[in-house]
């Protein structure tokens, strides 16, 4: 009947994103978690060492977008179950993958916005050699991938903490071996391998190149490809896990 065409489903995803942005992102708790935590972490680990602002920018941007998007992704999906709106949502004719996409769009927009504003201001102040086109592209891919990770973990959670705990178990160690505080090349071999299996490493690398021109175009392009593959895999698994909860 052509009743549920691709374009209609994409429109539905945007309506879901819009609803989520309105409901969850005005919540102060979400804002605190997304914005304050990475900034505090960063201040603790970086500023003590007295390095120039521009060198600090990529790490700060990476933490903000990674923590912001993944926290909000977990919140928006798990809260549907916790607040008994999940049935209301899945009673509507939307394929699960487009439900996940809608929520991912919302989480991306959130991570993108909370990162772009402070980082752009700081980049201007520090007069860093930022390629803004590459920066926005890197930020989009990074927020997409971070949201995907959150979706994946929240797909089966009945309460927010059920997904937030495993998320923290994953992302806090990730933070230390992603190249934010120490260059990956200084790690032992096995840690380097682990680092290259983690999405945050590519987030950091792509932001280093686009914000302060550290690294190469070739590795920047590799980062983009890696982030897109990670995102696709995360979203597919998230949809599968969500589908499994209906069994």
């Amino acid at each position: 009947m052509g009743k549920n065409t691709l374009s209609k489903n994409i429109i539905k995803s945007f309506y879901i994103a819009w609803k989520d942005l309105r409901i969850y992102y005005s919540s102060p708790a979400a804002l605190m978690m997304g914005l304050l935590f990475p900034i505090l972490m960063f201040l603790t680990f970086w500023l003590g060492r007295n390095l120039p602002l521009s060198v600090a920018l990529p790490g700060l941007a990476a933490l903000t977008v990674f923590f912001g998007s993944s926290s909000i992704a977990v919140t928006t999906l798990a809260l549907e179950r916790a607040k008994n709106t999940f049935d209301t949502q899945i009673s509507m004719p939307v394929p699960l993958i487009f439900l996940i996409i809608g929520k991912t769009i919302a989480s991306c927009i959130y991570g993108f916005v909370i990162t772009i504003i402070p980082i752009s201001i700081l980049a201007l102040i520090a007069k860093s050699p930022t390629n803004y086109f590459m920066f926005l592209t890197a930020l989009t891919a990074s927020s997409l991938c971070s949201s995907g990770l959150g979706m994946l973990l929240a797909a089966t959670a009945k309460r927010v903490h059920e997904a937030m705990t495993p998320l923290n178990i994953i992302r806090i160690p990730m933070m230390f071996i992603s190249g934010i505080f120490l260059p990956i090349e200084s790690f032992p071999r096995y840690l380097q391998i682990i680092a290259y299996l983690m999405p945050l490493t590519y987030v950091v690398d792509s932001l280093k190149y686009s914000l302060i021109m550290q690294g190469t175009v070739k590795s920047y392009i590799t980062d983009m490809v890696a982030l897109i593959i990670f995102s696709a895999v995360f979203l597919v698994i998230a949809t599968k896990r969500l589908n499994d909860t209906l069994k």
């Binding site: 709106t85 009673s91 509507m92």
Partner: peptide, 17 residues
């Protein structure tokens, strides 16, 4: 999905937003 376009569902615990 197509069935859901033809039916209305009020499940036991479903809340509006």
């Amino acid at each position: 999905v197509e069935v859901k376009s033809n039916i209305g569902i009020i499940s036991e615990t479903a809340n509006p937003y």
